[in-house]
């Protein structure tokens, strides 16, 4: 079992200054020496992604976290641009495309709705996991191992104390991950990382 030591957090928010939740999460996590945080909309305001640099950073990482708000049941567009440009044929997939093989990846999502909206009985009919299927397939295609998503629900009206709790929980999980205390094989039945402590 390979020990995870380096975490690359790619934060995608087109208006980070207006998102208290996403800023708070970033500020909590960026202090950790093993977590490298990249504010992608600040780096690529013109969507002109530096493919080389992104690939180098991916090579260094053991766990990639994709942090983003849930907009229109999906992720902001720069994530798609990033996937289109960085996950190149012959590098991430296709002939000799195995550079990401075995790396772990997960989404850290802030959502205006809650779990009760994102289910078959709720108003949005589908779960977060179901709506994130295209990403799941992308990572699978690149032979990456995807971890369950962590969701900060009801992010528009979240109380500061709850937000702090979420941030601490994510931080705790990542620290355990970095220390190698959490086995890559999760307990059966975990659909969201929220269920871990």
């Amino acid at each position: 079992m390979e020990k995870i030591t380096r975490v690359l957090l790619l934060a995608f928010h087109p208006r980070l200054e207006a998102s208290h939740v996403n800023r708070f999460l970033l500020n909590t996590l960026r202090e950790h020496p093993h977590i490298e945080v990249k504010d992608m909309y600040e780096l690529y305001p013109d969507f002109n992604i530096d493919v080389n640099k992104e690939q180098q950073d991916l090579l260094q990482a053991d766990l990639v976290i994709v942090q983003h708000p849930f907009f229109w049941y999906a992720a902001p567009p720069l994530i798609k641009q990033w996937i289109d440009l960085v996950l190149e044929h012959g590098w991430a997939y296709g002939t000799n495309g195995d550079k990401l093989k075995g790396k772990q990846i997960m989404h850290l999502v802030s959502s205006g709705g809650g779990f009760e909206d994102y289910c078959q009985q709720g108003k949005n009919l589908y779960t977060y996991t179901e709506l994130l299927r295209p990403f799941e397939l992308t990572y699978k295609f690149c032979q990456m191992q995807q971890l369950p998503t962590y969701v900060v629900p009801l992010a528009n009206k979240i109380a500061q104390i709850d937000l702090e709790q979420h941030a601490q929980q994510v931080k705790r999980i990542l620290e355990q991950w970095i220390a190698g205390e959490v086995d890559a094989k999760l307990p059966a039945g975990v659909t969201y990382l929220n269920e871990l402590n």
Binding site: V51, D84, L85, E88, H89, G90, G94, T95
Partner: peptide, 11 residues
């Protein structure tokens, strides 16, 4: 030259 959104020269 990059191959973004261009699969014409893939093998």
């Amino acid at each position: 030259e990059d191959s973004a959104w261009d699969s014409s020269h893939r093998n």
